[in-house]
């Protein structure tokens, strides 16, 4: 058997570069930290994008302020998504990409959640979050408390598992895995051996 290159351990979390010392945060971010104290855990700045990392328990306070405060006015929810970092205890990052049509600026809000933890739904702030949160639930299995209609959206309703998790196989479990996991393992092993030869 040929020697495989040593596999790297999976990355423990996103880079979340701190903003450079000589760069001041936009005014609304400073006001946010004053208006909702202790909610913003850290700020990050990378290739021109600002990210506010917030405590998941304070998420609704933060997005509520961002949506209504005149200097922020994030009236358009661009995207909600998540990333999976399995080695970390709070393995998921839930990411909200927001846009303001009045000021034409953007911000990303990020909350770290554990696997067994639910995060508050922002459908009350932006109705657009409805399907976006359903997709995150479908793909990552993150539960959103207070969501009006939390069910799968892209995968079939009776699907097992959440495909975008890093520990979910790319080829999918297949019907064999669901019916007979041992046969599936043998088949996979024989396929791997055939690849090596």
């Amino acid at each position: 058997m040929p020697d495989h290159p040593p596999t790297l351990a999976p990355p423990g979390g996103p880079a979340d570069q701190p903003p450079p010392a000589d760069l001041s945060a936009p005014r609304f971010l400073v006001s946010l930290q004053a208006a909702v104290p202790d909610a913003v855990v850290a700020l990050s700045h990378f290739v021109g994008d600002w990210t506010a990392i917030v405590a998941p328990a304070r998420l609704l306070d933060v997005v509520g302020w961002l949506a209504t405060a005149p200097e922020a006015a994030f009236d358009w929810c661009s995207d909600i998504t998540a990333t999976d970092w399995p080695p970390r205890p709070e393995r998921f990052d839930v990411i909200y990409c927001l846009y303001s049509t009045r000021h034409r600026h953007r911000i990303r809000v990020k909350a770290r959640v554990r696997d067994d933890e639910a995060i508050a739904s922002v459908t009350g702030v932006w109705p657009a979050a409805n399907w976006l949160e359903r997709e995150v639930f479908d793909m990552f299995g993150i539960r959103f408390s207070g969501h009006p209609d939390l069910r799968r959206i892209l995968m079939p309703d009776d699907w097992q598992g959440h495909p975008q998790r890093k520990d979910y196989p790319l080829e999918g479990p297949g019907e064999l895995l669901l019916e007979n996991p041992i046969d599936w393992l043998t088949l996979r092993q024989s396929r791997d051996e055939a690849d090596i030869e």
Partner: peptide
Amino acid sequence: AGETYHAIESPKGELGFF
């Protein structure tokens, strides 16, 4: 290492990549 979001105006609307 890092992350970014960039959006363009596709014929249908905002097409963003994260």
